[in-house]
């Protein structure tokens, strides 16, 4: 199981600068970042090499942070890979609540990070269908 950190931030200049600065100071490496926002505020989701450490670090600064389990699926960086994951989940009636992806090595390997309602169930469905899921440790070594 992999983890991401979610950070509450007001929609105003300097917020991402502050968060990334704190992570830099803590020697944390960011693998992926995604931001969604609504009425003046947003949630920044960050996949890092040391999620627990990053979580404690931001919390200690009083920043509303949440450590969340996510599924990180390894895919080929080729047409149809994302569709294959989506198809399996769809056939099993699993709803994807949030997702983002990033390429590890162009033309070879990509990672899809998904959030679903029932994480363990989705995990076992994906594993049964031959997908490789990454742990925090594996993300760290990517």
């Amino acid at each position: 199981m992999a983890h991401q950190i979610s950070v509450f931030a007001e929609n105003k200049p300097g917020r991402i600068e502050k968060i990334t600065r704190l992570l830099l100071q803590g020697g944390i490496n960011i693998r992926a970042i995604t931001i969604s926002s609504a009425n003046g505020f947003g949630v920044i989701k960050i996949l890092v090499n040391h999620p627990h450490q990053a979580y404690e670090l931001l919390r200690a600064q009083g920043i509303p942070t949440y450590l969340q389990e996510v599924i990180a699926v390894v895919m080929q960086d080729a047409p149809g890979s994302l569709h294959a994951v989506a198809q399996v989940l769809s056939e099993n009636g699993v709803n994807i609540e949030d997702a983002y992806g990033f390429v590890i090595k162009s033309g070879e390997m990509a990672v899809l990070v998904i959030q679903v309602e029932s994480q363990p169930r989705a995990q076992s469905i994906l594993e049964r269908n031959g997908f490789r899921l990454l742990s925090d440790e594996e993300i760290y070594h990517l």
């Binding site: 979610s6 509450f8 969604s36 926002s37 609504a38 009425n39 505020f41 947003g42 949630v43 989701k45 919390r59 009083g62 920043i63 509303p64 942070t65 949440y66 969340q68």
Partner: peptide, 18 residues
């Protein structure tokens, strides 16, 4: 100000709270 402990990483929940 929102309460840090009750932030669960969910944008929709925040919007409902608002």
């Amino acid at each position: 100000e929102i309460k840090s402990e009750l932030f669960l990483g969910d944008l929709q929940k925040l919007e409902r709270l608002r």
